[in-house]
Design a protein around this nucleic acid. Sequence first.
DNA 1: GCCGTTTTGTTCTCCCGTTCACAAACTCCT
DNA 2: AGGAGTTTGTGAACGGGAGAACAAAACGGC
Lengths: 223, 223
Amino acid sequence: MTARTPDSARDIPEATVARLPVYLRALTGLAEDGTTTCSSEELAATAGVNSAKLRKDLSYLGSYGTRGVGYDVEYLRYQIAREIGVTQDWPVVIVGIGNLGHALANYSGFRSRGFRVVALLDADPDRHTDVVAGLEVRSFEDLEAIVTEHDVSIGVIATPAVAAQSVADRMVAAGITSILNFAPTVLTAPEGVDVRKVDLSIELQILAYHEQRKAVAGSEDVS
Amino acid sequence: MTARTPDSARDIPEATVARLPVYLRALTGLAEDGTTTCSSEELAATAGVNSAKLRKDLSYLGSYGTRGVGYDVEYLRYQIAREIGVTQDWPVVIVGIGNLGHALANYSGFRSRGFRVVALLDADPDRHTDVVAGLEVRSFEDLEAIVTEHDVSIGVIATPAVAAQSVADRMVAAGITSILNFAPTVLTAPEGVDVRKVDLSIELQILAYHEQRKAVAGSEDVS
DNA sequence: GCCGTTTTGTTCTCCCGTTCACAAACTCCT
DNA sequence: AGGAGTTTGTGAACGGGAGAACAAAACGGC
């Protein structure tokens, strides 16, 4: 037990983990273009990062390149996919089928990248007749049953902000251990549950800040 | 020119800029609850960050608190809003009115946070008859005219991946200097143009990675 | 007016992530 | 077979952000 070295479970820096999906996408693009081999320089350009950073990132996974040659696109693609865990299919449940939930349910990028939406839930009974992306919108009360039935560990929250925390609590109670939150609110979850958030308006505000600075800098030159 | 100290234009760290909108939202929430004063500890808890980090972040903006007392909610809220630049209204144009573009156009969080969607554009003529969120979907060819008319500097891309780069190029040519990209592709833009990306499936893949590690760790205990 | 209490603003230290630079290793050509 | 040319993998330097800890400042009670 002490000297055990799990196959690939040494600790990969969080910043690297966040970039692996980008590399995966870049490799998929290269493969579709018929490229079979690529250098770190090429792949880095495609992924929009520094080549040294790319090589260091990949070195955390193992030594999958060949010096003087580069990387085999298909082989590296598989290795990264395996490392991230998207060689298997992850069942996902989406809660809150408003405009955004609708879009997420229809988003083809999930399916093609190892995620399968198994259920759409909404608290509003008026929506329970709807069929979205080939799935019937079901009652939020069915959450526990669905999580158990499909062994769901990832939940997506696309509800209004006020409902998000209670939805998260129910998800955690039902056994979900990873949450992607689109509601504009801070979620708290117990130890062991991962929460990531995507906030549409925060991104715009960050852009606005820089935009404002550009304007200020411009007027300074004039004055 | 040398000894000039612009009002509030000293360089704020990028990490801090990314958190300011979170503080802004937390303060808005506190204000709605009737809170007039709060300590860094309270605000930090609401925003989900460390209180030391919060104080350091705020110190980059200036000295807006009172020792022994805390911060005036309304005053601090205004100061942050001014720093970010959301006291004014930013006109925004959205290109690509599919499922996601639809959701973005209807997202009330933009309007309430200083952004005004002035136009919805799509390359598909079949969509030009649609009215979404009170706005008629117009031809992508109208981009330049709209940007000029409304003095738009922020563009949102919600097109399929293949179209994103050409849309971005057209946006830049039309005078847009900040782009929020929802298409799953790496965009290149000239110096001086800010590009931020929101990638729905990347977030899920990051969750999947950690989820997989949880599973592996669990099976190790058993073995 | 003075002292204890509270809370901010800031300094210092540590850690993570990025980048540079180079040795190791592989291919190709002669 | 050997040398020139590439390209990976990594050690080391560097920069920035996170958190702890503390000094400065404001308030309240006596």
